[in-house]
């Protein structure tokens, strides 16, 4: 049945329309929840989405095990994952772009740079541009809406480098990219035990990174006065690292699923797309982190 000369079209399915309905419920529910109204629709939508996606993915896995997924369909899956990751890259690009814009242009302009001297003199007199922005224009003008932090996440100096969390985070993620690569290599050569072992290590390293980030956020809120509300530095810091952290959680979840599948005996030396796709995603998360490490921490 499955050959290049005979196409495979899946049967009609309820899963797509149910997924769409759950996304609709989540959009409505999220809109209500952020206004402090009932989170019910959001939670129900999320629950239905989780159930349907579980069913959808297991259907695709079963189709593959029954030999319905030919090489052409697999190429489609491969392309789809690649383009999905590209779309994720562009999502991060929007936030990196915002960071560069405020650092290079907006904040200096508020400080009166270039031909913007009157902006500073008339609107934010006394504000001087700096990065990380420790004192917001609002503060200088006597406001309390946006209050800058008393410490920032930048490089703390060589003497304190061992306590600098993002450095440890970088080491964790780089190591995990390496271990996931070893796992990939292992399954391609049929050594299942080695695959499971190194995939488990990868998941553990990912979890450790999430814990580290939790510690860092806790420190930021509890000790440094660095919050979402502490002006554009806090805004860009939390949005960039926060979305990255969310993607790490997603990546850990995907790899954990692949680990469970590995323990159940899924994957063959020539067929491990579910794992491969998750590992690409993991490498992508890793590369985004390198961008964050350089532009948010080292040069921050």
């Amino acid at each position: 049945m499955a050959s290049e000369s005979n196409y495979y079209i899946p049967e009609n399915s309820w899963m797509p329309v149910l997924t769409a309905a759950s996304l609709g419920a989540m959009a409505l529910g999220a809109g209500l929840a952020v206004q402090g109204k009932t989170p019910l629709f959001l939670l129900v939508g999320l629950f239905v989405l989780a159930c349907v996606l579980f069913n959808w993915f297991s259907t695709v896995i079963q189709e593959n095990m029954r030999g319905l997924t030919n090489a052409q369909v697999k190429r489609s899956f491969t392309m789809a994952m690649g383009w999905f990751i590209f779309s994720e890259v562009m999502f991060f690009a929007a936030f990196f772009g915002a960071l560069f814009y405020v650092r290079v242009l907006a904040v200096p302009w508020l400080g009166g740079e270039g031909d913007k001297a009157m902006t500073n003199a008339l609107l934010w007199q006394g504000f001087s541009a700096e990065w990380p922005l420790m004192q917001t224009p609002d503060q200088v003008a006597g406001g309390t809406k946006f209050v800058g932090p008393h410490e920032n996440m930048g490089f703390p100096g060589w003497s304190k480098i061992t306590g600098w969390l993002p450095l440890w985070g970088t080491l964790l993620l780089l190591t995990s990219s390496w271990t996931v690569h070893i796992a990939h290599h292992a399954i391609k050569h049929g050594s299942r035990g080695r695959f499971n072992f190194f995939l488990a290590i990868t998941v553990a390293l990912g979890l450790a990174f999430v814990v580290l980030q939790y510690m860092e956020y806790h420190e930021a809120y509890a000790e440094m006065g660095l919050t979402l509300k502490s002006g554009i530095y806090g805004t860009t810091f939390f949005m960039l690292t926060g979305f990255h952290g969310f993607h790490v959680c997603l990546g850990v979840f995907m790899l954990a699923i692949q680990l469970l599948r590995g323990l159940k005996g899924h994957f063959k030396p020539d067929d491990q797309f579910g794992f491969e796709a998750s590992s690409w995603y993991w490498h992508f998360v890793d590369v985004v982190w390198l961008g964050l490490f350089i532009f948010v921490y080292v040069l921050g």
Partner: peptide, 22 residues
């Protein structure tokens, strides 16, 4: 709108023009 960030608010160091660029 909901979480107090200042992407598009000059008081926090952001810029409404940033919105137009994005």
């Amino acid at each position: 709108i909901n979480f107090g960030t200042s992407f598009f608010n000059a008081a926090g160091g952001g810029d409404p023009v940033l919105f137009q660029h994005v």
